[in-house]
Design a protein around this nucleic acid. Structure first.
Length: 659
DNA sequence: CCAAAGTGTCATAGC
DNA sequence: GGGCTATGACACTTT
């Protein structure tokens, strides 16, 4: 697994470096931030990042719980971010070009494209799949490729590829975008309310990005955009409230077919399919899977449903998100062999191939060879090297009757059984596997995927009390009866203490069975089997400890969730505090200005008034007072009664002396 | 080797 | 009263 991760990350590095060298800023970080919000923002709303696993999607979508940092799938997230950070530290040139351009490649109006502006940073991408059906003519589409890319690049408006005209780099970092100060470049199309709500940036990013991307005449309008931008910056603060309408108006001016652009059912996966077919390197299974993905939901729809329920087939059809989506699909579907192969060679290396960079083929083939040489069973554990040693790795892919459980556990499905506060939406995901078990214990079955390796065994047979097996670690699937003493040497190292005790006392149940039995059945078993006192005690202890272990796991998860939620709350409150402080400063400035104006007006009015003797009123001695009825009157300024207070003080001293 | 994190277990409270 | 869950505390293991 470590090997797989190594090659996975190396492939990402190479791919990213390559794109950076040719002038494309591969802002996976932006993607990840956009589509996978940071942990601390989890309770700002549901997010797709945490919907990758059933467990977290349960909490996020149903109970508002947030992901805890141990989620093994988040390894991809952090690994990708770390890789991007490393690449950026290399000092590669960063151009405003974003991969958003890949996504709306068919939107731009070709009439307004200017092929001459593509420049050295031109990317030869075959994205015209829906129209051109470029599955078999990848090499012949260079002209068209460039054209389409230029369309896409120009459609990005201020962000043009290669020949980027705009010097301002516009990141899509949601951490920064909630600050008004960071409004620049593309941010024109975001309203302040949007900017202030980082929790909803995932969908807004997409919409915003496509709004600008779909501007076909961005470069000719660069000056106009700059003018709009300067107009925006020159807006008085009081006009900020109108910014939403202003931005909406601008968006409507950009491209009337934004939604159509977004809903074009042409994703990068289409390009990947074409490329892989052209290069003929995708295994048939992976190819079929990719073809099936061509029918994935449109981009916008996917984003809309991503936060609530991530469809595994839809995954992430976004540019660089593809590899990660595949990675997540590994964990969700348990088909890691396909997923790993597809993850790397389809989504990463095929994109490199599509770039027409033959120099990378050697690297690709090397990595691919290494990857293909990896045992798929090892790759299956790609996401399970977190602190939790899940049952999935121990069961092995070939465990009879446990494949579903294995796949579910590989996605860190955790138990959630009996976890108050967590609902078991896992049913919807693993319902097929569950229906294979006893319907009475369907919920208990879910907990089996959680069991840790020093714990209890697979549930495949646990509701068959007459059959005692230890499928744990794959080796334990041998029946206990008969030669149980023989295999204790190996099993004792991998069994829990309770398992060993139960085996020593010849208790014909696995610990999992004992724990997950309904209490009535447990009592019935105690009576029916005529256990000795020691056996009964052990059975009760096993049951108690097992349940308490689950309870402890749930408790810790809740604690982590609470911590994560509180951290998010702190972040949110800090942002709110900063906003309020800014408002306070602004209000103070406004009040000062208004006071100054009032003072000036008072002086002006008083200088025009005359007293009884015909002399002008001294502004130092008189002031204007506005009554409740709106009547303005001239009143003398009340001097602070210094002598009075002094007198009161002396009086007080006198009183003190008398006392 | 050490520290931190993870995990299992016990005791206890509350339902 | 028994069963169960939640949780703090502790010890041990893993990273």
């Amino acid at each position: 697994m470590q090997l797989a991760k190594k090659y996975f990350t190396e492939g990402l590095i190479q791919f990213t470096i390559l794109l950076s060298l040719i002038g494309v800023r591969v802002d996976v970080d932006g993607y990840l931030n956009g589509y996978f919000p940071p942990l601390f923002d989890v309770n700002l709303g549901p997010s797709s990042a945490y919907a990758q696993t059933p467990f977290h999607s349960l909490r996020d979508n149903l109970d508002g719980y947030s992901v805890h940092p141990k989620c093994p799938e988040l390894d991809y997230f952090f690994a990708a971010r770390r890789l991007l950070d490393e690449v950026r530290t290399l000092g590669s040139p960063r151009f405003p070009t974003q991969l958003d351009a890949w996504l709306v490649h068919q939107v731009a109006d070709s009439d307004q494209s200017d092929p001459g502006d593509s420049g050295s940073g031109r990317i030869d991408l075959d994205l015209d799949l829906e129209v051109g059906g470029a599955a078999d003519n990848n090499a012949n589409n260079n002209n068209d490729d460039g054209k389409h890319l230029q369309e896409g690049c120009q459609a990005t408006g201020p962000c043009t590829s290669g020949a980027c005209q705009f010097p301002t780099e516009v990141g899509v970092d949601p951490h920064v975008r909630d600050e008004y100060v960071c409004l620049s470049g593309e941010e024109e199309r975001a309203s302040p309310s949007q900017l202030a709500q980082s929790s909803s940036l995932e969908q807004e990013d997409l919409l915003d990005g496509n709004a600008a991307l779909s501007d076909p005449a961005a470069e000719p309008h660069a000056a106009a955009v700059n003018q709009h931008w300067s107009n925006f910056l020159s807006l008085p603060i009081t006009d900020l409230d109108d910014l939403d309408s202003l931005v909406t108006e601008r968006l409507s001016d950009l491209d009337p077919d934004i939604t159509g652009a977004i809903s074009q059912d042409v994703s990068l996966r289409d390009a990947v399919v074409a490329g892989t077919q052209a290069y003929g390197r995708v295994p048939p299974r992976a190819e079929a899977r990719l073809v099936a993905r061509q029918h994935s939901t449109p981009l916008l729809l996917m984003e809309a449903t991503n936060s609530s329920h991530l469809d595994s087939s839809s995954g992430m059809t976004l540019g660089l998100a593809g590899p990660f989506a595949s990675g997540y699909n590994i964990t969700r579907n348990g088909t890691s062999h396909d997923a790993i192969g597809g993850c790397l060679d389809e989504a990463v290396f095929e994109q490199i191939n599509l770039l027409g960079l033959g120099g990378m083929d050697a690297i690709d083939s090397h990595l691919l060879n290494c990857l293909e040489s990896i045992d798929p069973r090892l790759l299956e554990d790609l996401d399970s090297d977190s602190g939790l040693s899940l049952e999935s790795g121990s069961q092995g892919p070939a465990s009879p009757g446990t494949s579903v459980v294995s796949s579910s556990s590989s996605s860190y499905c955790e138990d959630e059984r009996g976890a108050t506060g967590y609902s078991s939406e896992v049913d919807s995901i693993h319902s097929k596997g569950i229906t294979e078990y006893s319907p009475v214990w369907s919920l208990e079955d879910l907990s089996d995927s959680v069991w840790h390796d020093h714990s209890y065994s697979s549930p495949a047979l646990f509701h068959q009390p007459s059959v005692t097996s230890f499928p744990h670690k794959g080796i334990k699937e041998e029946p206990l009866s008969g030669d149980e003493e023989e295999d204790t040497g190996l099993d004792s190292r991998e069994m829990s203490r309770d398992e060993m005790r139960a085996r020593a006392l010849r208790i014909p149940f696995t610990a999992l069975q004992i724990v997950n039995m309904p209490v009535d059945e447990f009592l019935e078993v105690l009576e029916a089997h005529g256990f000795s006192a020691d056996q009964v005690t052990l059975l009760r202890d096993i049951r108690r400890r097992g349940k308490n272990k689950l309870a402890a796991q749930n408790c810790r998860k809740r604690k982590l969730d609470a911590i994560t939620g509180l951290q998010g709350e702190v972040t949110r409150l800090q942002a709110q505090r900063n906003r309020l402080l800014r408002e306070k400063q602004l209000t103070a400035k406004t009040m000062g200005a208004v006071g100054h104006q009032i003072k000036q007006l008072s002086r002006d009015v008083l200088s025009r008034l005359r007293d009884g003797s015909g002399r002008p009123l001294n502004p130092e001695r008189y002031t204007l007072q506005c009554g409740a009825n709106g009547r303005v009157s001239v009143q003398p300024v009340r001097r602070p009664a210094v002598s009075t207070t002094a007198g009161s003080k002396t009086d007080k001293r006198k009183k003190d002396k008398k006392q």
